[in-house]
Design a protein around this nucleic acid. Structure first.
Length: 269
DNA sequence: CTATGGACCTGAATGC
DNA sequence: TGCATTCAGGTCCATA
């Protein structure tokens, strides 16, 4: 579920865990990767701060850090008084500020310990990630330069996370619509002017989604349990056959790398 | 190096 | 009601 806006909403929702002491860890069924440390070794450590890099949440501890990824179906809750865990709740951090609980039916998500940001496995997970779309270092010129390196369709280049991170299937479709770019266009054939429009569209779409609390297609909820509602304002995603909000032509679907791409044949070239 | 298809896993929706 | 098929927010890995 989670793309950058959902992960950022989650980060803000659990930021209050900073300063809390870890009391214990409970693991359910295996997630994508093993934790990489004995759970009891975390007991007694303190959470210093909660950061984000791309779609990873970073729980910085007084010693080491936890990297959390929500995969396709994950969500995190911060619970003051936690009821017994359900069948899909596969990781829990009990702390003095409440229980941080991961719900992830498909288990594509992960919780991984690293001794430091510049040590494995953090380096393996984070080092190849592209620039943060909402940072100032992500500028139109360098984005256009990055696109020149890829002959693949722009939609798939956005999802690959090298030219920019955090853009998943929903927001790639929405940003390409906002920029008027056909999703099958080879990335390297996008002009500087159109790359600048796409750069602005990515930032605008992500920021708007954060303001809407993210998108809830099936089961995303914030750390406080609230659904997002960006999906109600999506122009193209999930709207095959419905009229384009700009030109009223029917929204079309395309299959790219086993993912559905929604776009308007009238507005995107 | 880039590009592509398969893999991981469960549940909901659809069609017969 | 049951059963098979398709699809869903991601991304790593093997193969060309």
């Amino acid at each position: 579920m989670p793309e950058l806006p959902e992960v950022e909403i989650t980060r803000r929702g659990i930021a209050g865990i900073a300063g809390a002491r870890i009391i214990g860890v409970r693991q359910g069924l295996p997630l994508r990767w093993p934790l990489g440390v004995e759970p009891q070794a975390l007991t007694g450590r303190t959470v210093r701060s909660v950061g984000r890099r791309g779609k990873y949440l970073l729980l910085h501890l007084d010693e080491g850090l936890l990297l959390l990824h929500l995969g396709m179906s994950g969500s995190l809750r911060l619970l003051g008084n936690a009821p017994p865990p359900g069948k899909h709740e596969h990781f829990e951090l009990h702390t003095s500020a409440g229980t941080l609980r991961l719900h992830d039916a498909r288990r594509f998500g992960a919780v991984v310990y690293a001794p430091a940001l510049d040590a494995p496995p953090a380096t393996q997970l984070l080092d190849k990630l592209g620039p943060e779309p909402l940072d100032d270092v992500f500028d139109a010129r360098s984005f256009h330069h990055a696109l020149q390196k890829h002959r693949a369709p722009i939609k798939q280049v956005l999802l690959a996370g090298r030219a920019v991170v955090g853009v998943g299937n929903i927001y790639a479709c929405e940003a390409l619509f906002a920029a008027g770019i056909h999703p099958a266009t080879p990335a390297a054939r996008i002009s500087a002017a159109r790359a600048a429009r796409l750069h602005a569209a990515i930032r605008q779409v992500l920021q708007s989604a954060i303001q809407q609390g993210g998108s809830t297609l099936r089961d995303f909820v914030s750390a406080q349990g609230e659904a997002g509602h960006f999906q109600l304002h999506a122009a193209v995603y999930g709207r095959a056959g419905q009229p384009c909000p700009r030109c009223a032509r029917a929204i079309a679907v395309l299959r790219q790398g086993q993912r559905s791409t929604y776009y308007c044949p009238g507005c995107q070239h």
